[in-house]
């Protein structure tokens, strides 16, 4: 037993060294690039429950099923979300074709109106479907838009992480995202972000991100997805928690699925 633990210690030391030297080979930009792609699966199907919690602790819950597919550029997604609850919005669905270079295309179907309507709203820095996540938080920040620095490593929930600070390269990026700085805790083992901090234009802490229950969803392509993500706007004490369940990847969903016609189908 004792020998075993000493052996284990030895192994840990060896791997530790490898880990460090491995880490030093990676530039912060490399790390952020790996992070950018780590959850970018070819397609996915999942159920999700989004809970919004306001300052006084009141909650709003929305349950939905979602299907997503990566577009040909490997960056932007197409998503179709159908809401199951609350009951009075059941059947409301939402089709989103992301365009990282411009306004996304969003269509919504309201069963009570029996019409598909196009919805144009928001900027990248703004709220994603009324949550505390911004569009960029969900879609991912473009690596080249920021200058990244490793400021150290920290242990988060028992896992070693790089701590990386990212600064917008231009004023435009800064204004578009409404951020002066991001701080990310990226797991050294799989490059998943487990904690993040966003700072607003005046340099004040604005939002805090947390991820947990991180699962390897695509072994072949080494894709990981956190099953619970949480974003808190610390300035207004508003919080959004999203739980994913039945997360499946590479289901072979067809491009045609992401059509306005499909929105109306119950």
């Amino acid at each position: 037993m004792k020998r075993f633990s000493i052996a284990g210690f030895g192994i840990a030391v060896v791997f530790g060294f490898i880990g460090v030297s491995f880490g030093e080979d990676l530039s912060p930009k490399d790390i952020m690039t790996k992070n950018f792609f780590v959850n970018r699966v070819k397609d996915s199907k999942s159920e999700s429950a989004m809970t919004l919690i306001n300052e006084s602790g009141q909650k709003r819950e929305r349950k939905s099923t979602g299907v997503s597919k990566l577009q040909k550029n490997g960056i932007d997604n197409m998503r179709l979300i159908k809401f199951i609850s609350p009951a009075d919005v059941k059947g409301t669905s939402n089709l989103m074709i992301e365009h990282s270079d411009g306004d996304d295309d969003i269509w919504i179907y309201l069963p009570a109106l029996k019409k598909v309507r196009r919805l144009v709203s928001s900027n990248k820095g703004d709220s994603f479907v009324g949550s505390d996540f911004s569009y960029a938080d969900v879609i991912g920040y473009k690596v080249q838009d920021f200058e990244h620095k490793i400021t150290g490593s920290e242990n988060v929930d028992g896992v070693d992480c790089y701590v990386i600070e990212s600064f917008p390269v231009s004023d435009k990026v800064k204004q578009d995202n409404g951020l002066s700085k991001r701080k990310s805790w990226i797991r050294k083992d799989n490059f998943v972000i487990v904690k993040g901090e966003n700072y607003d234009l005046s340099g004040q802490l604005y939002k805090v991100f947390k991820a947990s229950d991180i699962q390897l969803v695509d072994k072949e392509n080494n894709k990981w997805q956190a099953m619970t993500i949480e974003m808190t706007n610390v300035q207004v004490n508003h919080k959004t928690i999203v739980h994913f369940s039945n997360y499946k990847v590479n289901t072979g969903v067809d491009d045609g699925y992401f059509s306005q016609r499909n929105l109306e189908r119950e």
């Binding site: 919004l52 306001n54 809401f83 609350p86 009075d88 919005v89 409301t92 939402n94 919504i108 309201l110 069963p111 009570a112 109106l113 919805l119 709203s121 928001s122 703004d126 709220s127 479907v129 009324g130 949550s131 505390d132 706007n233 207004v236 508003h238 959004t240």
Partner: peptide, 14 residues
């Protein structure tokens, strides 16, 4: 309800 929902999705939570 659906209008409120759409508005909530197109704006900020607050």
């Amino acid at each position: 309800a659906q209008f409120l929902f759409v508005y909530s999705m197109s704006g900020d939570p607050g």
